[in-house]
Nucleic acid binder design. Structure first.
Lengths: 187, 187
DNA sequence: GTCTATAGAGCGATAGAC
DNA sequence: GTCTATCGCTCTATAGAC
């Protein structure tokens, strides 16, 4: 055959991830990705029908990695879960962004997202009991927000001494609040 | 004079705000903005040296509006402050985004941001006392995160019944947690 | 399955006339 | 201060040869 396969979907994804981390979601172009793989841009369309589909595949990859990370948390302490979540978001910001904002996932791809949600709800059961879903959403929102604040650089503003290490402080406040709302469950 | 002034900085900003809300930060183009004002793209450069400078001016405008909204909150209840913050972020999402992510502000422009910070810290003094800065950052992070979650559509996922109305729930948890950490200040 | 070539569109910013 | 004209660059996606 005159044109043997030079690549495959896995290879393309593997090249897309570090490139995404460098240039961000909006900056990732099929042209640059193809060049990195020493291909013409057109070749990628054999494996992904559109740029959007490729990004969706990367988002699923990100969700799977995050799931694996969170599954590694042992015990009932939500702080361990939070620590791992923050580590992923901080060390792979563009991947985390894509995971949070990608809205072109099909039903099959959404399953990983569901697994993540269920894992967190299950881990918060000992702390929050029947309020576990609400607690999970609250914790998720808090962590997601702190990641955003850290990234926007509000800690670096020298003129209005922002407190350092607030992320941990807030987490303790949150856990304390959950405990106080469930004195029976968590005596 | 053959070419009298057809516009000014205020008018340009006034046109930029609704256009930003429609197309988002990345989608705002000088060409479209100029067309809206019935000008050629080049005319805008008399009033703003670059697209980035124009966006910075809009971000400051956004911060000023948010400050005015928050100043309208009376009493010591953080829920009122939170309600107004959420209302701004929900009703003017692109403006809120720009306010949170714009990183090309000069020192003068950053002053409004400082005023916002100081207002929140002051309002949280009765609740958190000496921990007021940490409490402010925690509350800010939580609200910012919930805005992001709401926007990413996690509440709409039908397959994994996410709890509704969690934003209020989490706020109460947060306040309860702050109270429990400061039993002396808030008996 | 990859290639060349191109369609078709977008953008920020600048030069110089008036 | 606004205009015309343009530079120089970006991109996704498609058509058809091999």
């Amino acid at each position: 055959m005159p044109y043997p396969a030079k690549t495959n979907a896995e290879q393309i994804l593997a090249a897309a991830v570090p490139m995404l981390e460098q240039v961000g979601q909006a900056g990732l172009s099929l042209r640059a990705l193809a060049a990195e793989l020493k291909l013409t841009p057109n070749a990628l369309y054999r494996y992904f029908p559109s740029r959007e589909a490729l990004l969706a595949a990367v988002a699923v990859q990100a969700a799977e990695w995050l799931l694996t990370d969170l599954q590694g948390a042992t015990g009932d302490d939500p702080a361990e879960l939070a620590r791992r979540y923050l580590h992923f978001a901080r060390t792979r910001p563009a991947l985390y962004d894509l995971y949070m904002t990608c809205d072109s996932l099909n039903a099959e791809q959404l399953r990983v997202y569901g697994q993540l949600w269920e894992l967190v709800v299950a881990r918060l059961l000992p702390l929050a009991g029947p309020f576990s879903p609400q607690a999970a959403m609250t914790l998720w929102g808090y962590l997601h927000g702190m990641v955003g604040l850290e990234r926007s650089g509000v800690y670096d503003d020298p003129s209005h001494d922002k407190p350092r290490g607030t992320t941990t402080f807030g987490l303790e406040v949150l856990v304390a609040g959950l405990r106080s709302l469930n004195p029976v469950i968590c005596p």
